[in-house]
């Protein structure tokens, strides 16, 4: 992932827009005012930040579980020699929203970690069965039992 040049105003925009976007007729104008820039400048910069993938998204973030859907962390132990075949098989499922290769400090063998997002909770078991069949490997599920964090806290440091 390449670093993108962003300036102090961009940083202020990213920090300011992590939450609390106003619900009013001209919300961008309201935010631009607090940042001391024009509405047009804010819109142009937002567009550029999204295009450069400094931001991956701007808008309402839905709690899929509250809409009746499910968002579940899952992991697999993938043998090195079989890696690419399994990556391709897992990523082919539209329900796989994110997928990361992870490396343990202490020899844990669960090396593929992905998030399953489905529109209903029941659909998770179904897609897990299909992934296990497609890959020939067991899927471990780690559903969220409790969340101890609410807000977004990362300050821009680039």
């Amino acid at each position: 992932m390449s670093e993108v040049a962003i300036d102090a105003i961009d940083r202020a925009i990213v920090d300011r827009l992590q939450g609390g976007f106003p619900l009013c007729e001209q919300p961008y104008a309201a935010v631009a005012h607090t940042l001391g820039i024009s509405e047009a400048d804010l819109l142009a910069r937002l567009q550029a930040l999204l295009a450069a993938r400094v931001l991956t998204r701007f808008g309402p973030l839905f709690q899929i579980e509250r809409i009746g859907g499910a968002f579940v962390l899952a992991a697999m132990r993938v043998p090195e020699g079989d890696w690419q075949r399994v990556v391709d098989a897992v990523n082919a499922f539209p329900a796989v929203a994110h997928n990361y290769r992870r490396e343990s400090e202490r020899g844990c063998e669960l090396n593929m970690w992905f998030v399953l997002a489905t529109e209903s909770a029941d659909a998770i078991a179904e897609v897990v069965g299909k992934i296990e069949t497609a890959c020939g490997l067991p899927v471990f599920l780690f559903p969220k039992e409790r969340e101890y964090f609410i807000e977004m806290k990362l300050a821009v440091r680039a």
Binding site: G19, V54, T56, P60, L61, F62, V156
Partner: peptide
């Protein structure tokens, strides 16, 4: 139903 309305930064791009 909505957690927040805002931006999702790419962690890599913000350092």
């Amino acid at each position: 139903l909505i957690r927040r309305i805002g931006a999702v930064p790419n962690h890599y791009a913000i350092g």
